[in-house]
Design a protein around this nucleic acid. Structure first.
Lengths: 239, 239
DNA sequence: CGATAGTTTGATCCGCGTCAATTCCAGTGG
DNA sequence: CCACTGGAATTGACGCGGATCAAACTATCG
């Protein structure tokens, strides 16, 4: 694994414990008292991934859970012949560990330079069992992810290519908290977008070009975009 | 709503409290002490649905959560123009309330005569907050549903029609705990299967006929099937 | 029986996948 | 500064899997 673990950086990723920590919104910390945070910090280790590195592989024994503090991850599932489905993109503040128990059910790969907090899974589970309000917080997160997963099933099962791309652009902008009109970064490649939307790279490219030609969006370099007409794009998305 | 609520049937759906109750495996009860069960029972009401009835609609305020005791439900999401995606089928023992908070994120409809236990959502949430090990149980359920949802995304995004149908037949048989070779009931219509797999009714029908012609499965009436060659079917499913 | 809803099967069509050829950049080195 | 290079993106031509349209068949229920 290309992950670099920094054992000395005992940090839960939350400013109440660690001044140097860059994350503002770490699920597992938000609901804790200072005393709880101190004990919690002892469990955490910083992990750094370089661009394209794999955090863990689908099917491997699940040794850790993580909280993403910087950068973006893609979660991938593979078929035997290499076909790939990306089940989600993670942004800073997301927790990794809601969907699996003993083995990872997807691979996690860095879209660029990435930082995480890692927790040994068994220790985390033990600690979770003694911290009911944290479990409550995680259940809320799971709720949101389940609803999002079902929205994605609707997209994959019933929407056209054009509707899929429009839905994605709107959802990703909202995910990053960007106002309509602001530039949204696209940390993933066209291939990643295609594998997330159940399309091919060519169809994604053609569809983006079409939306740009029609003035609904603006492409900012190759790794960013801006929504010009949110209402029109929402109409295309068939929400 | 076509639901019939029986106010006198104070029953949590678990035999330890209610002799007449038919369910064997009710998530919200399994982890409770007798005393907890008694208090819990006061929250529950029996609901009966006739075939095709709607338990609740997508977008409505979420007033209740449920535990399915008898029959099968489909969970549906609709687009404005009527396109439908079924995000899951529920079988006895399943809990309904993991994916939504204030409003239902899908509609729930009975595939046949159905019985449920209903719990007022607010009361259930209050009670949940005071029962950590129940929250733990629900988090485990959410974990399983999330993993299943991601498997379904892989199916919808990347599998061919043939692979989808084969995957569905295998997964549904396992879901009902049927051994390979046993007859599996199909309580849903071809339309339901199509809307679950992101296909049309014609494609589902053609594909089932094809698998039957090849001897991989046997169709038992129109509402049942038997897997003749599990290994071959698994190969088709591209697991 | 007829009526109705669900299913199967066949013929045709089209959106998106596939294959192929440029084009566009971000590096990198001279 | 420009030339070169390799990976990513775009664009075009064409074909196929599954959707659509149409019709016949089956089962259930009055």
């Amino acid at each position: 694994m290309a992950a670099v673990v920094d054992d000395r950086a005992v940090c839960c990723g939350h400013h109440r414990v660690c001044e140097s920590c860059e994350v503002r919104d770490l699920a597992v910390c938000r609901v804790l008292s200072p005393e709880e945070l101190r004990r919690f910090a002892a469990l955490a280790r910083h992990v750094t991934l370089e661009s394209g590195a794999t955090l863990f592989h689908e099917g491997d024994p699940a040794t850790h859970v993580y909280s993403l503090t910087r950068g973006y991850l893609r979660l991938c599932k593979l078929l035997a012949d290499g076909r790939r489905q990306i089940t989600g993109f993670l942004v800073p503040g997301d927790f990794i560990g809601l969907a699996f128990a003993d083995t990872y059910v997807y691979s996690a790969e860095a879209l660029g330079p990435t930082r995480l907090c890692a927790f040994a899974r068994t220790a985390f589970q033990d600690w979770l069992a003694r911290t009911p309000h944290l479990e409550h917080e995680l259940l809320g997160r799971a709720r949101g992810e389940l609803a999002a997963a079902q929205e994605q099933m609707l997209l994959l099962g019933r929407k056209s290519a054009r509707e899929r791309v429009a839905s994605f652009l709107l959802a990703f902008a909202r995910r990053l908290g960007r106002e309509p009109g602001e530039t949204v970064p696209l940390p993933m490649t066209r291939t990643d977008i295609a594998d997330y939307l159940g399309l091919t790279i060519e169809t994604v490219s053609r569809t983006l070009s079409g939306l740009r030609r029609e003035g609904l969006i603006e492409l900012v370099g190759k790794n960013g975009y801006r929504i010009r007409h949110a209402a029109a794009l929402e109409a295309v998305a068939a929400l």
